[in-house]
Write a protein that binds this DNA or RNA. Structure first.
Ligand SMILES: [Mn+2]
Ligand SMILES: [Mn+2]
Ligand SMILES: [Zn+2]
Ligand SMILES: [Zn+2]
Lengths: 129, 129
DNA sequence: CTGTAACTGAAAAAAGTTTTCAATTGGCGG
DNA sequence: CCGCCAATTGAAAACTTTTTTCAGTTACAG
């Protein structure tokens, strides 16, 4: 898990420092954390280093940055998935089954080459109903 | 167009000031503008007033705020639609046909009540290919 | 017209992010 | 192992974006 990420860093010519490993461990503990949440999980690491590490991990494809309106959040990059966001409690859950119907994409015809997509579903989670 | 928005403001107990109308006119000129782009179209209006007007118009449902990763953008609220974003030139185009297959939404079964969704498609526009 | 609650905008504060730079260190070459 | 040095770190400062404050102004109901 972390070994793979550390290997990818070394392979890219980057050092595997204790700070970077600490940030990785923090990210592994929970998905969709804000910068401050990540920082709380690795108190020894300086603010600037957390920012820089998240940038580096994003470039390496290890981390994905989410912009869901209320500030940036970060997650370990996993398989293609989407998010269900509760408008009441803010909880973010994931689902893998992609409800996009490719045949309905009206863009292929219009010269726009689709590379990826991002879908978020908003509503009320079970607990908040 | 603007009349409807002004009426909605008055109806909500808000004043239709020249500043607010100027921001509305700026928004009507182009979709998906950043704050500074909007501000450039109504030079007489103070920065703080633009922020406050966009907040107000959002609450009234006249304006929609988009968070697409590179800072906030604003558009006049229209019918349900989605965005195709060119990763090369940054151009944002719209499409109305919603490619979501409701029967594939795996959430209805899982006690999550879906209220709305947001879908963005990333790739290359015709001009950039 | 007039009174007043709503509104505006300059300045200051707060929040979030990036840059700078001197000191430190991971890891390769010897 | 050791020592070197480019890569890395973190405190401070700078910058960017957004919010708060507050004194003066204004839209508009009555
Ligand atoms: Mn996720
Ligand atoms: Mn749009
Ligand atoms: Zn999908
Ligand atoms: Zn849709």
């Amino acid at each position: 898990m972390l070994e793979a990420a550390i290997g990818k860093m070394r392979g890219g010519g980057y050092k595997a420092t204790p700070q970077r490993t600490a940030v990785l461990r923090a990210l592994a503990e929970e998905q969709h954390q804000s910068l401050e949440e990540i920082r709380a999980r690795c108190p020894g690491v300086g603010l600037v280093t957390v920012y820089r590490t998240l940038d580096l991990l994003s470039e390496l494809g290890i981390v994905r940055r989410l912009d869901l309106g209320d500030g940036a959040r970060y997650e370990m990059a996993k398989d293609h998935h989407h998010h269900a966001i509760c408008e009441s409690c803010g909880d973010i859950s994931e689902f893998e089954k992609c409800p996009l119907d490719p045949t309905l994409l009206p863009l292929e015809a219009s010269d726009f080459e689709v590379r990826s997509h991002s879908l978020e579903v908003y509503g009320r989670c079970a607990a908040c109903r």
